[in-house]
């Protein structure tokens, strides 16, 4: 009996020592990744992810409480980078699910009173115009964050899919006839 206990103890002790040495020898520093994640996020604090600002989102991603695909303005690019940082499963590259058509704000000029509320709220300065003038959206700068829609007193702003132009048009995936007619 004593032999058995002694043997197992000796085995355990021996292996424990080896593992202890290995743990020290192969120690890997894990840097705090929250800052790294935050650096990847757009920094517009638009709130589309449901977290209070980009810092909050970064903390959530670091804890694993939020998916890497949480940032709609960041799109697939950010998701892939975040997946690399956190070691999560990266999103697919061509599926229709993850990278949906981007949306941009559109202002119905008839309803716009030129109150400049949206203009002040826009995180990327994508709305141009001045007080008492009708505002317009710069499609290339708009990230579709919904902030302006919420503040418009006359409900003159909606989000719509980004219009196709010759520059961003591409052939549809074969077998999806819907796109062919646009």
């Amino acid at each position: 009996m004593i032999e058995a206990v002694a043997t197992m103890s000796a085995l355990g002790l021996g292996l424990g020592t080896i593992l202890g040495v290995a743990a020290r020898r192969f120690h890997v520093e894990t840097p705090p990744i929250v800052d790294e994640i935050e650096a990847q996020l757009p920094g517009t604090n638009c709130g589309q992810c449901g977290f209070p600002g980009c810092r909050g989102a970064a903390e959530a991603v670091a804890e694993g409480a939020a998916p890497v695909t949480l940032c709609p303005p960041g799109g697939r690019e950010v998701a892939v980078t975040l997946a690399e940082i956190t070691g999560a499963e990266p999103p697919g590259s061509g599926g229709t699910g993850q990278d949906a058509e981007p949306v941009v704000a559109f202002i119905f000029e008839d309803h716009c009173t030129g109150c400049t509320k949206c203009f002040k709220r826009c995180p990327t300065d994508a709305i141009i115009g001045a007080a008492k003038q009708i505002h317009t959206v710069v499609n290339d700068a708009c990230i579709g964050c919904d902030a302006c829609v919420a503040v418009c007193p006359t409900e003159a702003i909606i989000l719509r899919t980004k219009p196709r132009t010759l520059r961003n048009w591409h052939w549809p995936k074969p077998g999806t006839p819907a796109d062919a007619t646009l």
Binding site: E3, A4, T7, M8, L11, G12, L15, I18, L19, A22, A23, R25, F26, V28
Partner: peptide, 27 residues
């Protein structure tokens, strides 16, 4: 030591130790 009855137990111990070591090394 005539402890053949400990075979499975001690083998698992040894294997677990080696795996832990490999894991640390690969990491």
């Amino acid at each position: 030591l005539g402890l053949e009855f400990l075979r499975i137990l001690s083998f698992i111990l040894v294997i677990a130790g080696i795996v832990q070591f490999t894991e640390a090394a690969i990491r």
